[in-house]
């Protein structure tokens, strides 16, 4: 689904991704863990075509990509962002939010697809004409997921999809994403600071640090701490939580 070689991305003059290779198979769920500033969100934004200052080779679904993405790219690749408060237009109803991708991609307004997309994420028609501020954080993230999935993309990019949510809501959203992936046979690339989220959601993962993958492992090794790289081991130890001294 994704093949990247010698990928470099910059913010201004600063290199945030340095010479990175990435291979994600069709139908796979691949996780990227790292701390703030590691470049993990920028990597997703390069794949999504949102970050333009990059070089290297990138192929998505067998198509070589340039800075400008081809027509219909939005039907293949969609993205869900961290903050459902910031990623939905505050003055658009759920109906309008979900209609947007249909209109942009030339399918026209389709009421049944909107209702279907809502049902897919566990919402119903009663949520359709509400504004984002009338929804809970979890419901908003469900709407953001419905918007990303309404065109049935092959590849879904998830940038800390549950970091802004309470633990019980996080569990619901992760279960929803797992179910939808199975139903629709999607490929996931999920970025998170949480090792636990990645081990719950993915089959393979990379530990990212200062713009590079310092280690790539199957998630069992991530869960068990079977890691060779010094930074990856440090992150694993820190993620196991606080232990009181006395």
């Amino acid at each position: 689904m994704i093949a990247a070689r010698t990928l470099i991305a910059r913010h201004g003059g600063h290199r945030v991704i340095g010479n990175l290779s990435l291979d994600v198979a069709d139908g796979e769920s691949f996780g990227v863990v790292g701390e703030s500033g590691s470049g993990k969100s920028t990597l997703l934004r390069v794949i999504a075509g949102l970050h333009r200052n990059w070089s290297g080779e990138l192929a998505i679904a067998g198509q070589r990509q340039n800075r400008d993405r081809p027509r219909g790219f939005g039907r293949v690749v969609e993205m869900v962002f961290q903050d459902p408060y910031g990623s939905l237009h505050p003055r658009q109803t759920v109906d309008r939010v979900l209609a947007e991708p249909l209109l942009v991609q030339g399918f026209g307004y389709d009421s049944s697809r909107i209702v279907g997309a809502l049902r897919d994420v566990g919402l119903d028609a009663s949520h359709r004409f509400r504004y984002p501020h009338q929804l809970s954080g979890g419901q908003r993230q469900r709407v953001a997921i419905a918007r990303a999935l309404i065109l049935r993309p092959k590849l879904l990019l998830l940038d800390e999809p549950t970091s802004a949510l309470d633990a019980s809501v996080q569990a619901e959203i992760l279960a929803l994403l797992r179910r939808l992936r199975e139903q629709h046979g999607m490929t996931f690339v999920l970025v998170s600071h949480s090792l636990a989220v990645v081990t719950t959601m993915c089959e393979r993962a990379a530990v990212m640090h200062e713009g590079r993958f310092v280690e790539e492992v199957v998630v069992d090794d991530l869960r068990d701490g079977n890691l060779r790289d010094a930074y990856a081991r440090e992150l694993f130890a820190a993620s196991r939580g606080f232990r009181r001294a006395g």
Binding site: E35, S36, H193, A238, F242
Partner: peptide, 15 residues
């Protein structure tokens, strides 16, 4: 805070 930083802060508070 990031996990690796949080650990140090908690150890400091603990002490």
């Amino acid at each position: 805070l990031d996990a690796s930083v949080a650990g140090g802060i908690l150890a400091l508070l603990d002490a």
